[in-house]
Amino acid sequence: MSSRDAASPSRRRLNPAVGRARNAVKDALEEAGWPSRVLVGCSGGADSLALAAAVAHFARRGEVGGHPLEAGAVVVDHGLQEATAEVARTTAGLLLELGLSPVRVVAVEVRRSGEGPEAEARTARLAALEAEANAWGAQRVLLGHTLDDQAEQVLLGLARGSGTRSLGGMRRVRELYVRPFLGLRRADTVEVCAAEGLEPWFDPTNSDPRYMRSRVRTGIMPFLESELGPGVTEGLARTAAILGRDADYLDSEAGRVYGSLAERAEPGTVFLPGREVRALPAAIRSRVLALAVVELGGQPTFERLAAVERLLDRRGSAGPIEVPGHVSVRRQPRRKDAAPGTEYGKLVFVSHPRR
């Protein structure tokens, strides 16, 4: 057992923030089905470093909740600042001292796609984490997002006019990723690092006004707290939890309906019956249309889906409507022998090969 866990009469009481962090990790791993091998994505910041310390507590013991546990870590160097390579090496050393193994430093190239530097860095980071998880056989990747991050996500979604799924924020367990700290404040992670004797790196981009999330974090959220009173952050995170449950149900119902309606007569083409789709509740209808687009590799947007829905009105153009991702949608004409008002033309979704 590590000296960090060694019991002694003079051992100081467990810091409450450390206890909350460890309990959060245990609860999240239980929800994730007790994975036996996990990776921690760590930037060296307070949030991910505190997460690494909490996970390492269980990894040193080799178990959590009576279930075996191995834990490694990945430090992604985006190469966007001169100091990041040294920060990555220092962070890797701290993670090894904590007892995580293996610890990998992965340098990535952030490709410009026009989505903005934050989204582009995120894409590169997640690709690296998934590759490392596959290489080591990790069942889950743990990330250090906090309740503050969740609140910022909801506020950004509101500003962008996003739908229920986006406003539902991040889920504690979703596919490969586990976010144990969504119920903890950022101040908790700073306290954990102090209690564990860890010195986190404070990324200067987190306070850089050029980035929208930084402006929300350093300007808008403090303003809302001062003008509306304390509890705004918790309220936004609570909104995410409520809308997330709603989105889960609507997505599940839409998936069931889509499975019963979609026809695939040929590769790269999906047919949906216009009459049945038109009769669906709006919240389900838009999701069913989006599922057809996604199945063919497209990216449904609010504006393009609205244009596709207008095809169901049988007024104006029958398409095609072009959707990002090289997908087009058109409405078939009604059969000539169909009785008036008894049949709507099918919607035809087609994937076009990229040239």
Score class of each variant (00 low, 15 high):
124 A>N: 09
12 R>Y: 02
137 G>C: 07
204 P>I: 05
4 R>V: 07
200 P>I: 10
78 H>Q: 10
259 G>T: 07
206 N>G: 10
28 A>K: 01
353 P>L: 08
295 E>A: 03
222 P>M: 10
25 V>K: 02
20 R>D: 08
26 K>R: 15
141 V>L: 08
147 L>G: 06
265 A>G: 09
224 L>D: 13
170 M>Q: 08
147 L>V: 14
187 A>M: 05
107 A>K: 15
34 W>F: 12
95 L>G: 00
94 L>F: 04
304 R>C: 06
320 P>F: 03
332 Q>E: 13
292 A>C: 08
246 D>T: 10
258 Y>F: 14
87 V>K: 07
248 D>P: 00
33 G>D: 01
344 Y>I: 11
142 L>M: 03
201 W>T: 12
336 K>Y: 15
317 S>F: 10
85 A>T: 07
118 E>F: 10
121 A>P: 05
193 C>D: 06
169 G>C: 09
334 R>W: 03
274 G>V: 11
270 V>P: 00
27 D>C: 03
332 Q>H: 11
158 L>E: 14
39 L>N: 02
339 A>V: 09
202 F>Y: 12
223 F>K: 10
310 R>F: 06
174 R>H: 10
91 T>L: 05
83 A>M: 04
50 A>E: 04
115 E>T: 10
120 E>Y: 14
191 E>T: 09
311 L>H: 08
45 G>A: 11
162 S>F: 12
249 Y>C: 02
335 R>I: 01
219 G>K: 06
305 L>I: 15
182 L>C: 03
242 I>H: 05
101 S>C: 03
175 E>K: 07
47 D>R: 13
228 L>F: 11
246 D>Q: 09
286 S>I: 13
139 Q>L: 06
9 P>G: 14
153 Q>W: 13
326 H>R: 15
211 Y>P: 01
313 D>S: 15
208 D>G: 00
261 L>V: 11
125 R>C: 07
100 L>D: 01
277 V>G: 01
158 L>C: 12
342 T>L: 01
174 R>K: 07
30 E>Q: 09
165 R>Y: 07
182 L>G: 06
50 A>Y: 08
229 G>F: 05
206 N>S: 13
349 F>P: 00
267 P>K: 06
287 R>I: 02
50 A>Q: 04
326 H>C: 10
260 S>F: 15
47 D>L: 12
90 T>K: 14
268 G>V: 09
158 L>A: 15
153 Q>D: 10
15 N>G: 02
230 P>N: 04
221 M>T: 11
137 G>S: 04
124 A>P: 05
